[in-house]
Amino acid sequence: MNTGKRVALGIAAVPAVLTLAAGSALAHQCVNASKVNQAAGVQVVIDDESGEVVWATRGVLNRIDRGVINPETGEGFSGLLGFDVNGDQVADLATWIVGPNGEIPQQAQYGGATCSGVVNIQVWFEQCQTDPV
């Protein structure tokens, strides 16, 4: 991925990074607690420390080139966003940016088992993680 696209995609991902870092603002973000390989299916991987995009699918890059995704605001992106928390450029945690305002309905987040399937990401960190990712 060229530097220009990487920077543009990094800008697009800033709102998601800020949301994940905001503690109580996590109420609309989810993780699949049952998914063993969090990297499977992600479309963008962001370094948790720097906020830099370390990987993106060709499809995401094509959507930026065609103007479907606005690299300055992230508008137009929907899909699975991964975060690399250990510096190996592979997603260790993934969340969805889908639905109205990038949100998965509250019923889906809180309707099932606490640490199985789709789980609110704040609940996942507080109740399901015994070891750091």
Rank of each mutant, 00 (worst) to 15 (best):
T130I: 05
Q127H: 00
A113W: 04
Q127A: 01
Q129E: 01
V133Y: 07
D92K: 02
R6G: 09
V53F: 10
L26C: 03
V54N: 05
N101W: 13
G51N: 13
N37H: 15
S116R: 03
R58C: 06
G102N: 14
A33F: 06
Q129G: 03
V85D: 03
N2A: 10
V53P: 09
R58Q: 13
T114E: 07
S116H: 02
A13V: 12
A27T: 06
A108K: 09
P100H: 10
A33N: 05
R63H: 10
A13W: 09
A16G: 10
D88I: 01
V60Y: 10
N101Y: 11
A8S: 14
N120G: 02
Q109V: 09
A33W: 06
S78P: 07
Q129D: 02
V17F: 09
Q127P: 00
N2T: 14
G87D: 01
D47I: 05
W124S: 05
V119Y: 03
F125W: 02
R58Y: 11
C128G: 04
G23K: 00
C128H: 02
V133R: 08
F125P: 01
N2I: 12
N2M: 10
D47L: 04
G74R: 08
Q122A: 02
Q127K: 00
N120K: 02
N86Y: 02
Q107G: 08
P100W: 08
A8P: 12
D92G: 03
P105L: 05
I121A: 00
T95W: 06
V119W: 03
E72V: 11
Q106M: 07
F77E: 12
D131M: 08
E52K: 10
A22G: 04
N2W: 08
A22M: 04
V118D: 04
W96K: 13
D65P: 02
H28C: 15
R6L: 12
C115S: 00
G117A: 00
E103P: 08
A27E: 05
G51R: 13
